[in-house]
Design a protein around this nucleic acid. Structure first.
Length: 331
DNA sequence: AATGCGGGGGT
DNA sequence: ACCCCAGCATT
């Protein structure tokens, strides 16, 4: 039996070309990878609060939504305070949206907070306050996509699912497919390959999903992977290939931040949150959007107004009525 | 398939 | 400075 994890055929196939076999890896080698990751996870898992026994499905769901593009270190304290304040879907459903957005604070992408509250209301209205236990039903909830639906189904209900986040994609891409980093976009072919890697046994699949994710978060990191600490080091297709560079490096372009509408929106949201109960004058918001300067001095003088209008369109801010048309507040 | 959407900490 | 983070909704 070969000790190579990746078959020659799989290694030679151009990245993301054609469907290919669902499992381009030797079956017994895959089983060994499963066992290795499960053992490693048992010895190295972090003690994250949402992993503790007794955590409700709703609490897990909230953690997953907060973790959408926000690192664990920042989510942890926010999640504790949040769950302390709104422990059940009905609690969040009944809260004023402004309070929800204020509690969201600087986790980023505040639309997620609105969606999470919509999700709470949907759970109450459609499911009697009980988080649904199937991926399809979860996927139908606001703010719940493929990853979060799979994660909740697997981690709180013990379902066999294809949990495919940035960590899992990176570990699978490296260890089993020899890539430095996953493709910028998650396509059908990659999803099908990942599905083929999930252990058949239900309980094993749950530990595999969380184990691979943890390995990606702690060892097989994007920037400087700690291969010397990796339990898959001797099997890793990427290491065996000499850790080749990222094939998508040229097309992988970071979204700009300085001077963008997103940055300006963020400043305006911060200003809106700082007005505890009352309204904020439009002029103050535009100035906040310009980072305290005169908006007219910006390269694009209309940017703060545009950003504020987009926040209103997104339901993150509301404008005063006819009596106070130039004042705004959180919804 | 591509784009827009926050914010902060690690390197 | 740059990069990345347990993605989702919309086009």
């Amino acid at each position: 039996m070969s000790t190579d994890v990746v078959t020659d055929r799989a290694a030679d196939r151009p990245a993301d070309r054609g469907p290919g076999p669902a499992v381009p890896i030797d079956r017994s080698a895959l089983t060994a990878v499963h066992r290795t990751v499960l053992d490693w996870y048992q010895a190295n898992a972090r003690d994250l609060p949402w992993r503790r026994p007794g955590t409700t499905a709703w609490a897990v769901l909230v953690s997953e939504v907060m973790l959408q593009q926000t690192p664990v270190s920042r989510v942890e304290p926010a999640w504790r305070a949040w769950m302390d304040r709104w422990p059940a879907p009905a609690d969040l459903a009944a809260a004023p949206a402004a309070e929800v957005l204020r509690a969201w604070d600087r986790l980023g992408y505040p639309r997620r907070a609105l969606r999470l509250q919509e999700c709470a209301r949907a759970v109450v209205d459609r499911h009697g306050g009980v988080v649904p236990d199937t991926e399809d039903a979860l996927l139908a909830l606001p703010g719940i996509g493929a990853y979060t639906a799979a994660a909740v189904a697997a981690f709180t209900y013990g379902r066999r699912a294809v949990v495919l986040d940035t960590n899992v994609r990176r570990v699978l891409g490296r260890a089993l497919e020899g890539r430095a980093l996953p493709a910028p976009a998650l396509g059908r072919a990659e999803r099908e390959r990942a599905a083929g890697y999930v252990p058949e046994d239900r309980e094993t699949s749950v530990r595999w999903n969380v184990g691979v994710m943890e390995l990606g978060a702690l060892v097989c990191t994007a920037r400087s992977p700690r291969c010397e600490r990796c339990p898959l080091q001797t099997r890793c297709a990427w290491v065996r290939a000499g850790r080749p560079a990222d094939a998508h490096a040229a097309t992988r372009r970071r979204q700009a931040w300085h001077g963008t509408d997103r940055q300006v929106r963020g400043r305006i949201m911060a200003a809106l949150r700082d007005a505890p109960d009352g309204w904020t004058a439009e002029s103050a918001l535009l100035q906040a959007g310009a980072d305290g300067a005169d908006p007219a001095a910006l390269p694009d003088p209309r940017q703060p107004a545009r950003a504020l209008a987009s926040l209103v369109a997104d339901g993150l801010a509301v404008r005063g009525d006819d009596g106070h048309p130039s004042r705004y507040r959180l919804p």
